[in-house]
Design a protein around this nucleic acid. Structure first.
Length: 567
RNA sequence: GCGCCCGUAGCUCAGGGGAUAGAGUGAUGGCCUCCGAAGCCAUAGGUCGCGCGUUCGAUUCGCGCCGGGCGCGCCA
């Protein structure tokens, strides 16, 4: 049922309230969806909420409100229940209308231009090019991509950005690690860096470096450049395999090259919040809510990571992103206050100050991978962690995406490989995809069995929605069964779910919605036959199926999960 | 110790002032001469961590405990 119906009912109650209690402002009416079907399609606790202010008995007030409801074509019945709930039931026609809306809007159904094309940057993954991507990056990639899609659905102009930390100490560390492996290979006595990278991939890179025609690894800069290029390429391939694409890549090194780091430091000094102590330059971040002041420039003259971070976010702001969302592991949550503090200080004297809550953060908890009943902590290639690639190879891209999005970001995630693998056929993602494939199958049956009877039917048809035009204007009146009404109601909720998921940056809400929709469709399918002999009922049911398929498609594609016609 | 997050069915998790707290999975029993059984139906499983407040009403909000995770560098 559509939002249209809901606002209509709210209006009816508001008008009733105006009659019963003229002194009350009408905005107090709230409508909710009862958990139990017997309580109607909508329910309002308004009478109970207002009883005290009006010094009235809630039940009596509810009865008066019901009596004062203006007549409506959509409203079937209104009754008072419990301690004062007003339960509303709408006529089937009010619910049936959603099918036409969905079929007319197609891929656009559920979308709304709330943001009017305003720009927003979603930054995610941002892995250092020092190793293959791990499962945590996978969670971030799935989240970032889906959150981007959610925002796009609400009219935001989204830029997905990957920030490469290619200038820090860990890059130097990578170079030294590869160099040590090269020397080992050549039989030169080599000391492996104390906190070097131990994964096999470092050896692989060393080998490739030599294969590329280099005779030794003594040019550290060349080795490092080579290693970074290799790892970036590998990460890109992993992301490609995961179906995640970025609009732009931003290099930390460019912040130094462009002088943005220098400018940021200057802005922070000009703010008057910087001070020298023990040979280092500090920022009074405590004045912006941090629990201790932070070093900007170490006594050895190098900047801490904090400074390029601030410079980077100033760049985001200056690039026109008045809204920015960073997706990070919750182990980095201490940077939130710090970066915001830096931005507050740096922009304190600007004409367009950066707002206090800039940027937004979505922090996600860790992913634990279970295999054989035990936590899987190492992989052959990476050594100390499970890679995204391994996960994709084991359980498939769609399943990994769907799984990783099936919990809210701030919940710990236990990814049970055995479950996803051994029961790959009972995987939740297949449950939803199966509903989609089933509908496609029914449509195909219809084409071959009834194509001639049911008007102009393109025999060449692929299972393309455009080829089912004849279903767009069928009479939906025959859709009156309990399961049909439940499906209609569920279909109508999609837009609202989408809006809410986008507002809360919570794609898992879409996952749960799709499971429910698919579940209701499966129940319906098992209980009723779609391709019945009576043409009017058959057409109406097919139209409903087509609408369900459309919403499944819209939701799955938002999550980056494919929508197979056959499985 | 301080800060942030989390304690809901055996397990993995939704929900988030409203009526009898829900899914998936696991367990048990049914459903294919019928559009796809990767499905459906039924049964079973709970002091919503504990306590005190706010409220007509608390699993939901506030405070305090208990338990777990993460963070608390002149690392990123």
């Amino acid at each position: 049922m559509s939002a249209e119906v809901k606002s209509h009912l709210t209006e009816l109650l508001t008008r009733a309230l105006a009659k019963v209690a003229p002194q009350q402002p009408g905005s107090l009416i709230s409508l909710e969806r009862p958990k139990q079907a017997q309580h109607g399609d909508f329910s309002s606790p308004a009478a109970m909420q207002l009883a005290r202010a009006l010094k009235r008995n809630p039940r009596e007030l509810a009865l008066e409100l019901v009596a004062a409801l203006p007549p409506s074509e959509w409203l079937e019945r209104a009754e008072v229940a419990g301690s004062g709930f007003i339960n509303l039931r709408v006529r089937p026609a009010a619910k049936q209308h959603i099918v036409k809306t969905i079929l007319a809007e197609g891929d656009r159904y559920g979308r709304a231009d709330r943001a009017g094309g305003r720009p927003v940057m979603v930054e995610f993954v941002s892995a250092n090019p020092t190793g293959p991507l791990h499962v945590g990056h996978g969670r971030q990639a799935a989240l970032g991509d889906a959150i981007g899609a959610l925002l796009e659905s609400q009219g935001w102009r989204v830029t997905r950005e990957f920030y490469y930390n290619d200038a820090g100490a860990q890059i130097r560390n990578l170079g030294l690690s590869v160099q040590a492996r090269i020397r080992e290979k050549l039989g030169v006595r080599a000391e492996f860096p104390a906190d070097g990278y131990h994964g096999d991939y470092v050896r692989e890179i060393a080998e490739k470096y030599l294969d590329a025609g280099n005779t030794d690894g003594e040019d550290l800069e060349a080795v490092t450049r080579f290693a970074v290029a290799e790892l970036r390429r590998e990460q890109d391939l992993d992301l490609q395999a995961f179906g995640v694409r970025f609009d732009s890549y931003y290099l930390e090194s460019s912040l130094y090259r462009d002088g943005r780091v220098q400018k940021a430091v200057q802005a922070l000094i000009d703010s008057g919040k910087a001070f020298e102590q023990d040979g280092a330059l500090w920022l009074k971040t405590t004045e912006y809510g941090d629990d201790k002041d932070r070093v900007m420039r170490k006594s050895d003259g190098a900047y801490t990571y904090f400074v390029p971070d601030v410079a980077y976010h100033i760049a985001k702001w200056e690039r026109g992103f008045t809204r920015a969302i960073n997706i990070q592991g919750s182990d980095h949550h201490s940077t939130v206050t710090r970066v915001r503090a830096g931005l507050q200080a740096a922009s304190a004297k600007w004409e367009r100050r950066i707002p206090q809550g800039y940027p937004d953060y979505v922090l996600h908890k860790m992913v634990t991978v279970m295999k054989g009943g035990e936590e899987m902590k190492i992989s052959k290639r990476a050594g100390s962690y499970v890679t995204l690639r391994e996960l994709i190879d084991e359980v498939g891209r769609d399943a990994v995406r769907f799984f990783l999005l099936s919990r809210k970001a701030d919940a710990d995630f236990v990814f049970d490989i055995d479950l996803a693998k051994s029961q790959s056929e009972e995987n939740p993602v297949y449950y939803v995809q199966y509903a989609h494939a089933r509908i496609c199958s029914v449509l195909e049956q219809w084409r071959t069995q009834f194509g001639g009877e049911d008007r102009a039917f393109p025999v060449t048809s692929a299972l393309n929605a455009a080829n089912f035009d004849s279903l767009r204007n069928v009479d939906l009146g025959p859709l009156g069964g309990a399961r049909e009404l439940a499906l209609l109601q569920r279909l109508g909720e999609y837009a609202e779910i989408l809006e809410n998921a986008a507002a809360e940056l919570a794609p898992h809400q879409i996952v749960f919605y799709l499971r429910e929709l698919a579940g209701e469709f499966h129940s319906y399918y098992n209980a009723e036959r779609i391709l019945v002999a009576e043409a009017p009922l058959r057409s109406a049911r097919l139209a409903l199926c087509l609408a369900v398929r459309q919403v499944l498609r819209n939701g799955l594609s938002l999550l980056g999960v494919s929508q197979p016609e056959k499985m």
